[in-house]
Computed example of a mutant assay.
Amino acid sequence: MIILTKAAVCQTAAFAQEPPKGFRSPTGNIQCLFYDVSSVRCSIATVSNRLAHRPADCELEWGHDFGLEASSKEGEYLCVGDTIADDYPVLPYGESARHGAVTCRSARKGVTCTNIEGAGFELSRSLQRVF
């Protein structure tokens, strides 16, 4: 039996009406922001695994932010000096948010964002990967 609170129904309805500029996972650990016509940046606050190796040319924050554009052949790790954290609406588990050619799906195991080429990234506390 599934019980939806009034807030959950309103949040789900908001995604059905128009794409959000950003969203957060139900736990709040992952936040994503859509840019331009078809790109997304997601940030994961807490991870339990070892971060990917920092490239020598990155002197800023590394390993928690990921990006994807409509024409990308692979998602990418981002070297960033800012934050996208905001009070975005929750994207409930099992729901998707689409922005142009980029789609992000929320699941209990994390958030996966892909483009029409099949490239993207998958984020969870225990796994961060680009493909």
Rank of each mutant, 00 (worst) to 15 (best):
M1D: 07
I2Q: 08
L4G: 01
T5W: 06
T5I: 04
A7R: 14
V9N: 12
T12L: 13
A14H: 05
F15H: 10
Q17V: 13
E18A: 14
K21D: 15
G22C: 07
F23M: 03
S25H: 03
S25R: 03
S25F: 04
G28M: 06
L33P: 00
F34G: 00
Y35T: 10
D36H: 11
D36W: 14
V37T: 12
S38R: 06
S39E: 08
C42Y: 01
R50C: 08
L51N: 11
P55S: 08
A56S: 09
C58D: 00
G63A: 01
D65G: 03
F66V: 10
F66P: 01
G67N: 02
L68F: 08
L68Y: 05
E69R: 02
A70G: 14
S72I: 05
E74N: 10
G75Y: 02
G75E: 02
E76K: 15
E76Q: 13
V80D: 01
G81I: 07
D82L: 10
V90M: 08
Y93I: 08
E95N: 09
S96D: 03
A97S: 09
R98G: 08
G100V: 09
A101C: 11
C104S: 04
R105F: 07
G110M: 04
V111D: 07
C113A: 03
N115A: 04
I116Y: 05
E117L: 12
G118S: 03
A119C: 02
R125I: 09
R129F: 00
F131P: 13
